[in-house]
Write a protein that binds this DNA or RNA. Sequence first.
DNA 1: TAGTTGCATAACCGTATGGTTATATAATGA
DNA 2: TCATTATATAACCATACGGTTATGCAACTA
Lengths: 122, 122
Amino acid sequence: MQLSNHNPSPQNLDAIFAALADPTRRAILSKLATGEAGVNELAEPFEMSQPAISKHLKVLERAGLVERAIDKQRRPARLKAKPMAAAVTWLEDFKEFWSSSFDQLDDLLETLKQAELKEPPK
Amino acid sequence: MQLSNHNPSPQNLDAIFAALADPTRRAILSKLATGEAGVNELAEPFEMSQPAISKHLKVLERAGLVERAIDKQRRPARLKAKPMAAAVTWLEDFKEFWSSSFDQLDDLLETLKQAELKEPPK
DNA sequence: TAGTTGCATAACCGTATGGTTATATAATGA
DNA sequence: TCATTATATAACCATACGGTTATGCAACTA
């Protein structure tokens, strides 16, 4: 039995997790959780150029985690919930599935412990 | 107020999310959730060379998601729970924080779960 | 001892990432 | 009309990623 690879937004999980893998982008998301923000506004706390932030926003957009609006010259970004939920769902499904095979894991732990006893690490 | 970026295993979140961003690695994790597996065993389902799988395992190891053991010539991999929990924690913290402001994500998660129940994977 | 198995490592390749500076563009404001 | 603001885009750079083939090597097996 395999974990279904599967439900929420399958192929997009790549983009979603990749987007979450950068600390600047996670910080941007945190900031956006308090409300929409424009590019310069987002760039300010980081010691980073405006184009760099624009690129990060593009990554977040591609992952579907962020939407842009139009407000005069501004292009304020705001969060989108759904893809984030996809990531949560994958992890929670995984956690659930994994817990359900705890018997096997216990066996393994035992096996590994025996092996380590006979042949201690490094 | 900002989302605290410091809770679980801060710096490792980069490596953890990056590791989760590849479908082959997610599949490996799924497989490993059913029990330990050697490299060739892991490589078999994928149309991919053994060195490629070894590299993926290194990424998973660096992220702390996987441990290697020694069993004769084999180097079986098994899951490690803690870092996975770190990712879940970050996402759930985020969810909580965001929901407290907007109250959207919980609804969405609920919706997605319903959808999965009605429309089972592949 | 010789062959085989299980894996790691090295060298290489094309493409993607994450940053930069410089420049373009579109909308506002004077 | 002209300057300013907010952002995008281009060109470039170094490094990382995800794959390959070739090779090395330790540990079993015959």
